[in-house]
Write a protein that binds this DNA or RNA. Structure first.
Length: 319
DNA sequence: ATCCAGGCTCCTG
DNA sequence: CAGGAGCATGGA
């Protein structure tokens, strides 16, 4: 096992502590391991399974990026650095954000509260897509249980420093599953089983290249994703936000967003999707940031999660 | 038991 | 093209 390391300097303001808090408390956090001051994750980089660790490098805000694996070359470190920069959006210039959001007093307050927080990505876009499908119309705790079961059953494992890591299953693995035999026993509904395997097959056969969607216009990317069976607008927008890093999309149909926004704007009820879209127009070009702030607020208001079973256990960051 | 949960598909009018 | 029924599943 070799280790390479580099230092990156996020564009200020950057709040690594808030990003870490998000990861620590988010139901989507299954393949990541979050410690008191760092985040680790197993991922495929180039031709290697590696563990990437991101943590504070010095009090000035710079971050250390370490990559651990077998026979690593400089190219693996470069890939790890670009992964870290993408997942944490460290290179995004947010200096205009506070000014842009100040017109809306409610959002202005959130922008100040979460200064330096950017939407934290799920490192693997396919993982983001599968997670979004799993999360459709069920409570997030159960969705997290399903994701954990999927990862533990079909993900490759890695061991590093007494800790076990699991890679999210790749498209080829998921494409080879049988929904009755493999996913129903994990408590997936019949339709979600078919959706997950169907999108994996589309990706595995090369008919959909998720990474390439990053360069598309948002509406084009949403249209492409929506062609997949089981992927509607909410799911597509979620993938753009959490999987691909689009800064200005908002899943306006999201139940959690509708509830908290309806409450925050004094509707006395959940806002409708149309109302969320209308309000969100004022948050452009930062609508993904706004959505992320709301989700973080919901997460913080939620009751504390079940304590992790055992330090070092795989997937132990999920409650 | 009943309602709800980070929706989607498919079918009406 | 907007609106709604029906759908799966487990948890509170």
């Amino acid at each position: 096992m070799t280790a390479l390391h580099a230092t990156i300097v996020p564009r200020p303001p950057f709040a690594f502590d808030l990003a870490l808090e998000y990861l620590r408390t988010s139901p989507s956090t299954v393949t990541e391991v979050v410690t008191t001051d760092a985040c680790l994750r197993a991922v495929r980089l180039l031709d290697r399974d590696v563990v990437v660790q991101i943590g504070p490098a010095s009090p000035d805000g710079s971050l250390s990026v370490e990559v651990h694996g077998l026979d690593l070359r400089p190219a693996h470190l470069a890939a790890a650095v670009s992964l870290a920069e993408r997942v944490l959006a460290t290179r995004v210039d947010v200096t205009a954000l506070e000014r842009d959001l100040a017109a809306d007093p409610v959002m202005d307050e959130l922008a100040r509260r979460y200064r330096g927080l950017r939407p934290v990505l799920i490192a693997d876009p396919l993982e983001a897509l599968v997670w979004a499908i799993i999360g459709q119309q069920i409570n997030v705790a159960f969705a997290a249980k399903l994701k954990r079961a999927l990862v533990e059953r079909f993900g490759r494992r890695m061991r590093l420093a007494q800790r076990e890591f699991v890679l999210f299953p790749d498209a080829e693995t998921l494409a080879g599953l049988d929904h009755e035999r493999d996913l129903r026993p994990l408590q997936f509904s019949r339709q979600k089983s078919e959706y997950v395997i169907g999108v994996a097959r589309t990706v595995a056969t090369g008919r959909l290249h998720l990474e390439a969607l990053r360069r598309a216009e948002p509406e084009e990317a949403i249209a492409r994703l929506s062609q997949l069976k089981g992927v509607g607008r909410w799911t597509a927008e979620y993938v753009l936000l959490r999987g691909l890093g689009f800064p200005d999309v908002i899943p306006a149909a999201d139940g959690g967003l509708r509830r908290i926004i309806g409450h925050a704007y004094g509707f006395g009820r959940a806002a409708t999707e149309a109302e969320v879209r209308a309000l969100a127009a004022r948050w452009a070009p930062w609508r993904a940031y706004a959505a992320f702030y709301w989700w973080f607020t919901l997460q913080r208001a939620a009751p504390p999660r079940v304590p992790r079973a055992a330090e070092g256990a795989p997937c132990s960051t999920l409650g």
